[in-house]
Design a binder for these strands. Structure first.
Length: 353
DNA sequence: AATACGTGGTT
DNA sequence: TAACCAAGTAT
């Protein structure tokens, strides 16, 4: 038995859904039940706040309204639509998965656990979210909200940063989820976590299920959930070169296909330690003028980039390396750049073109 | 299991 | 400020 005795799942379901029916936010992806749209919203919402997602979601849906529209798009277009949202592998995986749905499933998002979980970028949470929200299938969709709510309801002290903990919560959800309103049930749990059962200072007095909450009863709601601390990101110093030709164009390059910021565009960079002369040697050009224009500090989840930016006017025809292009300012605006390099465009290229 | 993978907002 | 957080997934 996973759940403690005094818990009445039917009363809990009733109280939770009654509150959800009354208080749920009017969000763009709640106005429809197109599985494709639900899918896109769930990918965007991974580790990303609702307020951040909304404008991206609206633009993305206008640009790629259907499975076919997205499947037929170029990856460059998709990444451009994702620019600034972060975790860019989400966009590339979604694109690949939608192509798969188009070719293998006739454009219909699958509704079985095995098939949907095979899709790139669809893990246990997203699989459950699509199955329940789009198809009303009673599958668990355990995200950070749900783990927080359940750890409080049942006073569970397992570390929610551990993968094994999510599985325990999935087991609990399978036991208590509404069989008739799985879609609303999962969304209500997440909505509760977002609006009432918040990480700090949960609004227990407003909580529709406070009568069912063991943490509340024991006064330990602020101690839950237990979550291991993250490690500090490590600093990396590098140089970024804005190389400007005599006709006012810029050298940009596409990052590697894997790893950090995969397939996004950037200005050429050198690891700290290499001199500018050595770095520019490869391009076979002369330096007309060089100035250190800015210092960019950009914090990722696991790294901090400290970039010294140099604006370098060059003469001669630069020799371009693999994945590099010579482009105008307008062409730059059509490519997807990470925020770190957008800072360079904003400062070092202002007044250019 | 632990780590890589972005960004912006809060405290 | 530094730390933490947000509808996670792939490896």
């Amino acid at each position: 038995m996973t759940i403690l005795q005094p818990f009445d799942k039917y009363e809990y379901e009733h109280d939770l859904l009654e509150w959800y029916d009354r208080e749920k936010r009017d969000l763009p992806w709640r106005r429809e039940r197109d599985p494709y749209r639900i899918w896109v919203s769930e990918i965007m919402l991974q580790q990303t706040k609702v307020d951040t997602v909304i404008p991206y979601y609206e633009r993305f849906m206008s640009q790629f309204p259907t499975v076919d529209a997205l499947a037929d798009a170029d990856e460059e277009q998709v990444l451009k639509a994702w620019e600034g949202l972060g975790y860019y592998s989400r966009a590339r995986n979604l694109h690949a998965a939608v192509k798969e749905v188009q070719s293998a499933y006739g454009g219909v998002v699958p509704n079985s656990e095995e098939e949907i979980h095979k899709l790139r970028g669809v893990g246990p949470y997203t699989a459950g979210a699509i199955l329940s929200i789009a198809y009303n299938i009673p599958a668990p969709a355990v995200d950070g909200n749900v783990m927080r709510v359940l750890s409080r309801i049942f006073a569970i002290y397992d570390d929610i940063a551990k993968p094994a903990t999510r599985k325990r919560f999935e087991t609990i959800i399978r036991e208590i989820i509404s069989t008739s309103r799985a879609s609303d049930y999962n969304q209500a749990l997440m909505e509760l976590g977002a609006m009432i059962c918040t990480p700090t200072k949960p609004a227990c007095l407003l909580c529709p299920v406070q009568a069912h909450c063991q943490a509340r009863e024991q006064g330990v709601q602020e101690l839950l959930p237990v979550k291991a601390k993250k490690k500090k990101p490590k600093s990396v110093t590098l140089q970024a070169y804005v190389l400007i030709t005599e006709d006012g164009r810029f050298i940009v390059e596409k990052r590697p296909e894997t790893g950090l910021l995969a397939n996004l565009w950037q200005f050429p960079t050198a690891l700290d330690g290499e001199t500018m002369e050595k770095f520019l040697e490869n391009y076979g050009v002369d330096i007309i003028k060089s100035e250190n224009t800015q210092r960019v500090r950009h914090v990722f989840s696991h790294i901090i980039w400290e970039m010294d930016v140099y604006r370098v006017q060059i003469s001669g025809q630069p020799k371009l390396m693999d994945r590099q292009e010579l482009v105008t300012l307008e062409e730059i605006s059509e490519k997807a750049f990470p925020v770190s390099h957008q800072k360079i465009i904003k400062e070092t290229l202002k007044g250019e073109g």
